[in-house]
């Protein structure tokens, strides 16, 4: 009886350590991700496709200010070649100063970060009906079930149900908390032309690819983390066995 009580107390204590926050929105459907699990890695082709969706669609309004162009060629990411990354950088205009010290822009280089879309927050608000598009660098970690959520928002646009009033200029999205989102549906089937022939050109696929890309953008060291962790835990497990044996040996003649 006391053992049951003890087990119950421990189970309760354990459950309290995982912060359970009551969700105010519909739980996004869980997707399968290549980066899930202890051996998870990013799918390079998926990250490249996701980048293409970001470049052709999202980057019209959303910035990615914490990511540098050099990161596109880093190991553990989309792993573009250096030449490809340079070409991508050169496709962006970044703020600079000319020879007389006047503000101007120039082609991006690898050392630059993705530039802001709007010069400042006020401009971002003004250009978007009062709702500034958030920076996407950390979006995959800044929402519960980040990648699932991003995918769900991409596929969650549809007609508002009977009796639900969507404010003027806003849109209905099943997975947005409160169901009202300022962003217009950004994707439609066939909109982005992938180089790979066998990947479907659907909103669902675009959503998955861009969510994977944004997960990498938010957590660029994920692969290094998973790899190092394996070595650390194997080492510590062997060490624990040796330490346990030495502990037992030291105590072998002591009643305790």
């Amino acid at each position: 009886m006391r053992k049951i009580a003890l087990a119950a107390a421990i189970a309760l204590a354990a459950s309290a350590t995982a912060p359970a926050i009551a969700a105010t929105a519909v739980e996004p459907p869980a997707q399968e991700w290549s980066f899930d699990g202890v051996f998870g890695t990013f799918d390079r082709n998926q990250l490249k496709r996701g980048f293409q969706v970001f470049r052709e669609v999202c980057s019209a309004c959303h910035s990615l200010k914490l990511v540098a162009f050099r990161n596109l060629k880093d190991p553990g990411g989309p792993e573009f070649t250096e030449a490809e990354a340079k070409a991508i950088a050169a496709g962006f205009q970044v703020p600079s100063l000319d020879d007389t010290g006047q503000p101007t822009t120039r082609d991006g280089i690898l050392a630059d970060h993705f530039p802001l879309v709007y010069p400042n927050d006020i401009a971002a608000h003004a250009a978007n009906n009062g709702a500034a598009p958030p920076d996407l660098s950390l979006m995959a970690k800044a929402r519960e079930n980040g990648p699932d959520y991003i995918h769900a928002i991409m596929v969650g646009f549809h007609e508002a149900p009977e009796g639900f009033t969507v404010p003027e200029g806003a849109h209905y999205n099943e997975y947005m908390p409160g169901h009202v989102i300022a962003m217009a549906p950004p994707l439609k089937d066939g909109q982005v032309e992938y180089a790979e022939a066998n990947v479907p050109r659907t909103v669902d696929q675009y959503g998955k690819d861009v969510a994977a890309f944004l997960m990498w953008a938010a957590e660029p060291k994920l692969e290094a983390r998973h790899r190092l962790g394996m070595g650390v835990i194997i080492f510590l497990s062997l060490l624990s066995v040796l330490l346990f044996l030495s502990y037992r040996r030291v105590w072998r003649n002591i009643d305790h």
């Binding site: 350590t17 995982a18 912060p19 926050i21 202890v38 950390l138 970690k141 800044a142 929402r143 519960e144 980040g146 938010a218 983390r225 998973h226 190092l228 962790g229 394996m230 650390v232 835990i233 510590l236």
Partner: peptide, 18 residues
């Protein structure tokens, strides 16, 4: 190590990344 390497944001809240 299991948490640091495989669930580093387990104890955190998502608003820490905003």
């Amino acid at each position: 190590a299991a948490v640091v390497f495989y669930a580093p944001n387990l104890f955190g809240h998502v608003d820490h990344y905003v």
